[in-house]
Amino acid sequence: MSTDIRISRTSNAAKVAAVLGALIVVILIAAPYWAGRADLRLMGEIFLYLALASLWNLLAGYAGLVSVGQQAYVGFGGYMLFALTIFSGLPPLVAIALAGLLGALISIPVAALIFRLRGAYFAIGTWVMAEVFRLVFAQVSALGGGSGTSLPTDIVRSMADGRSAREALSYWLALGAALIVVTAVYLLLRSRKGLALTAIRDNELASASLGIDIWRTKFFVYVVTSGLTAIVGALIFLQKLRISPDAAFSVNDWTAFVIFIVVIGGIGTIEGPIIGTIVFFLLRETLADLGTIYLMVLGLVAIVVMLKAPQGVWGFIRHRFDLQLFPLGYRVERSKDS
């Protein structure tokens, strides 16, 4: 009798999810042809939040870097889009890509500083850095100082002919950003580096003893997420067409809501931010008319989920049904031939 051993990295549930996911993506790509202007705008915003949430999840849920200062890179990316198009005359699409590169670069010295801090001190340190970013950009009078500036109409017009074409482009960029971010996070976590990250999350002592450079791995994740966050930031303010320091570096909009999404959906899972984004926008769209009560409901939902399902909605489902739509692990399968 010989035993044949095979290593599988997928499952039937994942295959079904991949087909359904591809179908949904096709429908979403066609949205400018079937959705109204307001819906398109809302969906664009949803995708950008999904991208932000997936990035924060990678940072906090996998690398253990609980940052409350990622608004630094959202705002930085937004400002770079405005600065590069207004001062250097670059086309907006080039400026967006460049904003990501610059965001990654600026995150290197920031990381060198804040990586000296641990736990709660790290979180506070990231927030302080974001405030530093806000104060610096408020000093740039060419970009409107504290009151901000708008993207000049000729730059906006240069993107596409007509308002609806521009809005479709803006939508596709947002959808593209979300797809790229989720795919990148998935591929990263399936790779050798992803295995290292998951190991570090479980046990730092054993990780170091098995050849994993913990500082370097976390640094890599911080720089990559910061660069991608800057790209998302540039896209957010391309949608808004107006930027100011308070809007660009808002801890509420770009960190508190994002943390809510990830925690509700399930931190440390790829599916979590997707579920969380849907829940967040369902709540927002149904409760938006209630004013401040909306925020109180959000808080209440967060408290209930943390008490009843600390692993979030997806964590609860995964635990119950042993389900993974984005398979990251390895399964050893044995088929016995007699």
Partner: peptide
């Protein structure tokens, strides 16, 4: 390479994934 006196497994990973960490990160 070492074995720890008080075992230090990656508790949320499978046994095979634990081994894969060593094979990919340390043995390269």
């Amino acid at each position: 390479a070492r074995s720890f006196q008080v075992p230090q497994p990656f508790t949320h990973m499978t046994v095979f994934e634990n081994a894969m960490v060593a094979a990919t990160q340390s043995a390269g």
